[in-house]
Design a protein around this nucleic acid. Structure first.
Lengths: 347, 347
DNA sequence: CTGATTGTGGAGACCGTTCTCTATACAAAT
DNA sequence: ATTTGTATAGAGAACGGTCTCCACAATCAG
């Protein structure tokens, strides 16, 4: 390792300059109790003058690091951008900073990453749609304050969850499509390891989907298609589905980027969207609104999810132990991809 | 802060268990010189048995943290996903881990974030297309090993750069469009603070664009449009451009997501892409290949940029001081958005 | 006037590592 | 037998903070 030392400004330098003890300087730094206003002012002034920056690793040895870890599955679903905007905007008013890691949707990578965050003494963790099992998460939450986004675990005891009402999302989608006169509505879902299936957002959406079909006495039409996250597998399933004899009238995709792929496959097959097949996504990410896509989607307010989770995490770091489970309400944003053609005027 | 101590397994625990000194255990941990094979084996075994995890903050007090910081402008340009894939794949074979931060394309936020990374004793920094000035970057690079992606600073002395040949990108775009018979080709660029303009990728692309037009004796057609990163400003400029009397025959956008927006505006105006106006992007991100977009783009191989930067950074951490400047070669990926219609057969 | 309380400040142990330096054991060279 | 060299092991001082405790002065209650 290269040498680049120029005698760091430490808390001792500051204390000496302000004419107080190291302990007092530390108190000022942490906004702790037991310092007079005048001492506080002097120390603050010295810190500014010397452009002192606290050494995070040293703080981490005894106290907090004021760093939060955020675990994201990947960087290509634009919905995570929205969640992070919420997280950042909440943290702006706090002394905490977020650092992110990507688990590539793989259990082992997520596990390694989370443990690295713990090793780095992060004060708390936000995990977005992790693949880890409930047990693994409980273990982690036992070591560090934890909040989950996008995993339904209403029996969690050591961590909080923040979720969209995914059951309702499923219902909304079916009702919206049915209002347009469609009945053969497919749910295009995601394959997941069985270990976590029960808690995932997609399974909840599927339940809402099925429930709504039953409400409408359309249960016999229910059909769920499974694909991975990779383009190849999405395309394969979409092709199979759209070429089948019982081609659906509508496809509700678990997330927007899948919907875009399905829409593309439909076009390749010469089908018209929405006339031959209506398509819906979920998350209402930025691309939906583009004219070239015009994708009907369900908005689950990513920024809100982000803000809530940041808030809950900090509450937990500051001592709350009772688990909280927050839910936000989804709403339909209708666009061209599910529009009903104007009734043909017979001339 | 909540209490959740269960007497951590420290290097002392390990040393005691293996029957060696703390110093020896530390040597084993760092793969340092001066330990016999048998001692090494015993310590390793104890670490495994006790599932010991080194305390990163404590390591950071004296040695390395084996953590690298990556500064990204934002989370919504999918190109960054590709860069990070490269970074991750290179780091997988090393003891280093990457943590990310987002600067929201704002100088002050980037500055704060970078300093937080330094405070957290990150061993090195990768900055992707930062807004910081050359001077600020030199300062940072003086404190911590640094590699830049997407900023052309061939006179840097304290840091390395990894870049696409953006001049060549500009040339490629113009030549591709001209081969399709287009002459009024606009470059749709990004407004930037003047402080860094000189070094940015967009300015280099613009130079290539101008050079190619001159090579083709089309210099008089050169026209550059500037917009921000937000949808509103992109739409405004696109509308103005596409409604103008001298509507261009082709628009080369500095990055793909801008091209999608421009394409959408064109469609809204009832224009056909590519017949009325051809559109090109840059970065060849995943969406380009979708049928609904079919966007011609320029591939600059994000994973390669990521791998190179990770490699250079580690070399630097391990002692290299001479700056290196790497360049990758861009290539056109032609799709529907710039296709030339088949010559009409006169019947 | 005395004892209790409150507000302020500082001494010094401690956190879990790394790293320098010294000590020891043994082999090889003289 | 003595010296020199080499490989291994460990002692102990950092690193830059936090935090517990204690001391002291000023104020308050009785």
């Amino acid at each position: 390792m290269k040498k680049r030392e120029t005698s760091r400004v430490t808390i001792r330098t500051v204390a000496a300059d302000a004419g107080v003890s190291v302990a007092t300087a530390s108190k000022v730094l942490r906004d702790a109790y037991g310092v007079s206003q005048s001492a506080k002012d002097r120390v603050r002034e010295s810190m500014r003058k010397l452009s002192y920056r606290p050494h995070a690793a040293a703080r981490g040895m005894r106290g907090q690091t004021y760093t939060l870890g955020v675990l994201l599955p990947d960087l290509h679903n634009p919905f995570f951008d929205e969640i992070m905007n919420g997280v950042h905007s909440f943290l702006a008013a706090t002394p905490y900073q977020a650092l992110l890691g990507f688990g590539q949707s793989q259990i082992d990578q997520e596990f390694a990453l989370v443990h690295n965050m713990i090793d780095r003494q992060m004060d708390g963790l936000v995990m977005v749609a992790p693949r880890l099992t409930g047990q693994q998460i409980e273990d982690i939450a036992g070591q560090v304050p934890t909040v989950l986004i996008g995993l339904h675990e209403p029996r969690a005891i050591n961590y909080d969850t923040v979720n969209n009402d995914d059951f309702e999302s499923g219902r909304l989608a079916v009702h919206h499509l049915h209002e347009g006169g469609r009945r053969r509505i497919v749910f295009f879902s995601l394959v997941l390891p069985p270990s976590i299936e029960e808690s995932t957002i997609v399974v909840h959406r599927e339940r809402g989907y099925r429930a709504a079909l039953n409400e409408l006495k359309l249960g016999r039409y229910s059909r769920v298609v499974l694909a991975g996250q990779d383009r190849g597998s999405i395309r394969d399933q979409a092709l199979k589905l759209l070429r089948s004899k019982t081609r659906p009238e509508a496809i509700f995709c678990w997330t927007d980027f899948v919907a875009f792929e399905v829409m593309s496959v439909a076009r390749e097959l010469g089908l018209s969207v929405p006339d031959d097949v209506a398509i819906m996504g979920h998350d209402n990410t930025a691309f939906c609104d583009l004219n070239i896509a015009s994708l009907t989607s369900i908005d689950q307010s990513g920024p809100l999810l982000g803000e809530h989770s940041a808030r809950l995490l900090i509450e937990r770091i500051e001592g709350r132990t009772k688990a909280e489970f927050l839910t936000v309400v989804p709403k339909i944003v209708a666009r061209g991809s599910t529009k009903v053609s104007a009734p043909e005027t017979v001339s």
